[in-house]
Design a protein around this nucleic acid. Sequence first.
DNA 1: TAATTATGGTTTATAAAATAAACTACTTTA
DNA 2: TAAAGTAGTTTATTTTATAAACCATAATTA
Lengths: 96, 96
Amino acid sequence: MKAFKDLDPLLHSQLRLAVISLLIGIESAEFVFIKEKTGATAGNLSVQIDKLSKAEYIEVTKSFQGKKPVTTCQITPKGIDAFEAYVKTLKQYIGD
Amino acid sequence: MKAFKDLDPLLHSQLRLAVISLLIGIESAEFVFIKEKTGATAGNLSVQIDKLSKAEYIEVTKSFQGKKPVTTCQITPKGIDAFEAYVKTLKQYIGD
DNA sequence: TAATTATGGTTTATAAAATAAACTACTTTA
DNA sequence: TAAAGTAGTTTATTTTATAAACCATAATTA
């Protein structure tokens, strides 16, 4: 208990945590929306979304709105589980 | 709000967070004790304690117990403030 | 008593992560 | 048609985390 590796390193990242905690309360969100909400740069966000996607914490769909590319993100059940486990562990840390 | 940089990067590290959250509930703790509790390696812990110390989040005292060196760590008021701010921000993330 | 292991760390090197900068592809506007 | 904007991706650089090697001293043992 309180072994420092208990916190899922994939979620324990400033930006990825912000993304997941944003997606947890919403059905789906577009790249640009997430970018604005988190204040991240496009490059950084692109990389982190890719990691979350490869871990299957989120599902990413690419489509077009007219001629513009639109990247839509959605949290998966696996992502929800991971987030809940993360929060649970965290609460032990912060004594809640 | 929820800008991903809101979380103090100095505390947003698996090991440093474990150290601080350990020290918050205790007057002071020795290096070896923290090492065992967190499961960290000595090298890693040494580095992270140094960072927390340089940021004045903790105070480090070196002494001897007989002939053995003893490194004692204590959280500072600044460290307590930082931890509380961190927890506050975090709670917005995890929706608490 | 000379090597061996243990304790309590620090320093340095390497691996992994985050971030920024540069780039692609296409569109809109001046 | 040249410039600027949108929506991202890729690559390079910086920072961070981690592991490995090391130092000093003490206790153990062969």
